[in-house]
Design a protein around this nucleic acid. Structure first.
Length: 542
RNA sequence: GGCGCUAUCGUCUAGGGGUUAGGACGUGAGAUUCUCAAUCUUAAAACACGGGUUCGAUUCCCGUUAGCGCUACCA
């Protein structure tokens, strides 16, 4: 590799437009840039492409930075850089703050005759294009204004005609090396002389266009490897021509394939979650997301290993192993990875993240302890010692410990069955109470409950619950089940299903000897959770 | 229409002139369980098509087809 030859330091950039939430495709581009930079001892910059002032919004930039950090990606310069202030030696890193830079380069190109003024109107250009399509030719600009004489130009200027600045494409093939696709070549006559600077009157008058700006920025920032989406392949010959016109070295390119939805169309909102923020809100773990993204278009050399931390990825990542073909986003595999990382995750961290999900979905019961984290024990004591005392409506230390333990057993019970944390409150919903009417109304439940055996089981069970004092333990439950089995001769499904429906609203769910204590302990703790007794009264009372 | 990119199980991929074409997700079956999930075991599942080159091609070349991207004075 080039890097091995000298003390050459690769420089890459991630250059998103802050016009929306960070999409998984862009996130993967960012990740590959980051991995490449870290692998090769290079530098990575974040450059905000906000020249589209109408669509760009500051809040998207903030969110973007947050999402990248969440994934574990950092950068050496640019907004949000943790390593260097925004004033890096090649800044500023927002294109809107760089507008003053480009004019001198345009002047230089014009002076050297490498660019020219184009006075063609949009209508004329449109007519050229329709003609070209009709004649089955490539839609390239005719180059009509290339040969304008000095007098003609001056006349046009004097007449107040608007002009764009176009680059003169030399008559030789435009080639570039693409690390993931190999050599790519475009014939010169299939590429229009690109517009560098707009002519149109109005706000965008004289504003340089994307292809031009990107190229100048990349060159000025010393970018050596341009790693980006493959929707830029067709832009690349134009950019190469710009590098050549300035006599700048052409960087290496790596065009990453598109990420598709299950229907082979570009992944979009109608396929479900597509932005990093949304996955994050749903309670996906960043290490799962990063791992999945890394796997989407890249594979380890052994062809077998699939789970990697970012740190493990860095030493083995290589752009040469990136696949050129488009990849379909597989939610199932992401879920599998997320389950994998949930098993490995620190329980405290998981509990914190999970509690957040419950706070959103079960506000009547939660938060269990997180409010208390806003106050120190000293503050609480101090307030309580005032005259008159102020008691904060927050749990005591003992209560918090108790609740954390309870929540931990809830997690232990339900975590294996969920793909991501937001599913937790849904799957465990019955712990917090059920709707007896809905439970009866369910057709499968109704069929089970209609059996005579179900009636006798429930009657037997209810009488035991009613005569029992205090919380029902797993032992109590086991004894009762055995007693009922002996008394009625009913066993197996016929025995368990009706009880399960009465207690949980469904004929399937986690083991009773875990569920029963969870319910009773939660209720005993004063959480808004109906006891076994409450549930039976409610259910058989219907 | 033009230009370009792509093509191995349903999906992500490994491989590479001679292989039982490997792994993972998902799916099926079995074990376990009152049930679900989890877990373990196990099975099915692929080189798009047609021509070359070659003793031999899924692998190299050409073409076809299909998919996607670009085709703007958007980014």
């Amino acid at each position: 590799m080039v890097a091995a030859m000298t003390n050459f330091i690769p420089r890459v950039r991630f250059a998103p437009s802050p016009t929306g939430l960070l999409h998984v495709g862009n996130a993967r581009t960012a990740l590959y840039n980051w991995l490449f930079a870290r692998r090769n001892g290079g530098l990575i910059f974040l450059r905000i492409e906000d020249t589209d002032l109408e669509r760009s919004e500051a809040r998207y930039e903030t969110q973007l930075i947050e999402d990248l950090h969440w994934l574990g990606i950092n950068w050496d310069a640019g907004p949000g850089s943790s390593l260097e202030p925004d004033t890096g030696d090649h800044g500023p890193y927002r294109q809107s703050e760089r507008l003053h830079i480009y004019a001198e380069y345009t002047a230089r190109l014009l002076a050297e005759g490498k660019a020219y003024r184009c006075f063609c109107t949009p209508e004329e250009l449109e007519a050229e294009r329709t003609l070209a399509t009709a004649e089955r030719r490539p839609q390239v600009y005719s180059g009509r204004c290339r040969a304008l004489t000095v007098d003609e130009i001056n006349d046009n200027l004097a007449a107040g005609k608007h002009f764009a600045v176009r680059l003169r494409i030399e008559d030789h093939p435009l080639r570039f090396h693409d690390i993931v696709r190999g050599p790519v070549e475009f014939a010169a006559d299939t590429v229009s002389d690109p517009v560098l600077v707009r002519s149109a009157s109005g706000v965008s008058a004289g504003v340089p266009v994307y292809n031009y700006v990107v190229t100048i920025d990349d060159a000025l920032m010393g970018i050596t490897h341009v790693i980006r989406g493959d929707d830029h392949i067709s832009n690349t010959p134009k950019q190469v021509a710009i590098y050549q016109a300035f006599g700048w070295p052409v960087p290496q390119f790596a065009h990453l394939s598109t990420i598709l939805g299950p229907d082979r169309e570009r992944l979009s909102k109608r396929h479900g979650a597509t932005s990093i923020s949304v996955f994050r809100q749903m309670g996906y773990l960043p290490e799962a997301m990063a791992n999945y993204l890394a796997l989407l278009g890249w594979g380890a050399e052994d062809g077998k290993t699939e789970t990697f931390t970012l740190a493990e990825l860095v030493p083995i990542f290589s752009l040469e192993r990136v696949t050129p073909s488009p990849a379909i986003f597989d939610f199932d595999k992401l879920n599998w990875l997320n389950r994998h990382y949930m098993k490995l995750a620190d329980p405290e961290r998981l509990a914190k993240l999970a509690e957040r999900q419950f706070c959103l979905q079960k506000p009547g019961v939660f938060p269990l302890w997180s409010t208390s984290e806003l106050y120190t024990a000293e503050t609480i004591e101090l307030l309580a010692s005032l005259d008159p005392p102020i008691y904060l409506d927050i749990p005591t230390k003992e209560q918090i410990a108790e609740r954390k333990a309870w929540f931990a057993s809830l997690l232990a019970l339900f975590l294996p069955g969920v793909d991501y944390l937001a599913e937790l409150p849904v799957k465990s919903s019955f712990i917090f109470g059920i709707d007896p009417d809905a439970a009866h109304a369910d057709p499968e439940n109704a069929a089970i409950l209609a059996e005579d055996s179900a009636r006798s089981v429930l009657a037997e069970f209810a009488s035991r619950v009613r005569t029992h004092n205090g919380p029902v333990s797993a032992e109590n439950f086991k004894d009762w089940v055995n007693e009922i089995k002996a008394a009625t001769g009913i066993k197996g499904k016929e025995l368990f299903h009706p009880i399960r429906i009465a207690l949980t609203g469904s004929h399937s769910g986690p083991e009773f000897d875990k569920v029963i204590p969870l319910i009773e302990e939660g209720a005993a703790m004063g959480l808004a959770i109906p006891t076994i007794h409450d549930r039976i009264e409610q259910f058989v009372g219907v």
